[in-house]
Design a protein around this nucleic acid. Structure first.
Lengths: 152, 152
DNA sequence: TATATTACAATAGGATTAGTAGGAATTCAA
DNA sequence: TTGAATTCCTACTAATCCTATTGTAATATA
């Protein structure tokens, strides 16, 4: 029941861009270093996000990426769906008409529907802006802890 | 964000056994035919469930499997965990002490924690007995529909 | 203009997961 | 006691996922 690394990395990548929203362009290299993720793998991921129109790019020296829209306009769910296709825990939930020939036995289908809904309820309500806020609060918290440790 | 086929098949297998709970032994062959799943693959899955003590087996001719306990004593979560190891959407949630060296950046961790909780809330509250009930109700419903169609 | 930096693209290799295959061990029934 | 049915065990193949490699195109800066 794992979320693929693509989805996870995409979220961290987008959060990285969101934290720097409004500032200068960010290179894949920097994100890879900050997040400890393979640079080349990140390139593939960000390409997909670019195709979706979630990020804008500038090529060449001094180039890089930036968020296309305000962090508040991206939900975690949007990002995950872009990378994973769907949040359905089983693929037969995706079809419009349910082709599961064995639908008669498919009592288990209801279980997966409930799981899907539960997951969506979580990820569709969290925006990048929320996460940026969490991040900023954490930074302040860590700073206070640091100051406390050194008795300043 | 898919649940592995192992987990999905295991649930269908256990439900099949649950529906037949109290009756005669069930062979893998029968389950495979009913569920439309590869016999050999099911063998591997049921072996794992046997090791967990969830099913009992009788070897040889006229042998087969049966549930070790009452259907009400198995939750969907138990079965999935047995097959998938954990329901955490990302592996770093599994460690007791969080080894995620990048825990500082790990704002996203909270997202995955919420997803995990949401999933667990669903699957830990559904038992095989619940699914058996769903099944029986569905059988009655289908029968009524059939009778209605032929104007009896 | 030359050079360095960067996005963009295609592909190849390794690791994990999904599924297949063959046969040995066990047991019942005829 | 033989044969068929079944679990149990091990190995193999196929597909998918993740990462690395290599190279091309675009652009700013010196």
């Amino acid at each position: 029941m794992k979320i693929s690394t693509k989805g996870r990395y995409a979220l961290r990548l987008m959060l990285d861009l969101a934290i720097n929203y409004g500032g200068e362009l960010i290179t894949v290299k920097k994100i890879a270093a900050r997040q400890g993720i393979s640079e080349k793998y990140l390139e593939q991921i960000i390409t997909q996000l670019k195709k979706a129109g979630y990020v804008r790019s500038v090529r060449g020296s001094e180039g890089g990426y930036r968020l296309a829209r305000d962090p508040a306009e991206y939900t975690v769910g949007m990002i995950l769906r872009q990378m994973e296709g769907s949040l359905a825990p089983v693929s037969c939930l995706d079809e419009e008409v349910n082709l599961c020939a064995r639908a008669a036995d498919c009592i288990t289908l209801n279980v997966w529907k409930k799981v899907k809904t539960a997951v969506e309820d979580v990820v569709d309500q969290i925006t990048l802006a929320d996460l940026v806020k969490d991040y900023q609060e954490k930074v302040v918290l860590d700073l206070n802890l640091y100051l406390l440790t050194f008795k300043m």
